[in-house]
Amino acid sequence: MSKILIVDDDLEISGLLLKLLSRKNYEVFIASSGADAIQIFNSNQIDLIVTDIVMPEIGGLEVIRIVRGINESLPIIAMSGGALINSGTYLTMAKQLGAKYAFQKPFDLNEFSLAVQSLIG
């Protein structure tokens, strides 16, 4: 069973994705901050990280950079509410940092599921 780490300070979103991905038989970990995420990532064999970008303290970009420092090929999906001036840039940067997919919230769950499926089967 593939392990997916969901990082978002909004628990409604992580809860939704937990429900969605659990049904598809993934083991889902939830982190509500960048720091949590790094900790969970370090202590579990995570196959996919789905991370929000705009979060207090350690943001999503930082999370991606750190993870990339540890694991160059781990699939990462970025997502953002994307309301900041440079939100487009954030998602672009996330991809530049190595996220395979970047989703603008709110996104279609089917598309999201397909993206997950394409990355970890």
């Binding site: 409604e12 939704l16 994705l17 509410g81 994307g82 309301a83 900041l84 603008q104 919230k105 709110p106």
Partner: peptide
């Protein structure tokens, strides 16, 4: 918009 999108995400999802 950021918050709003976050709110909309679970509703839609």
């Amino acid at each position: 918009a950021h918050d709003f999108n976050n709110i909309l995400t679970p509703i839609l999802g």
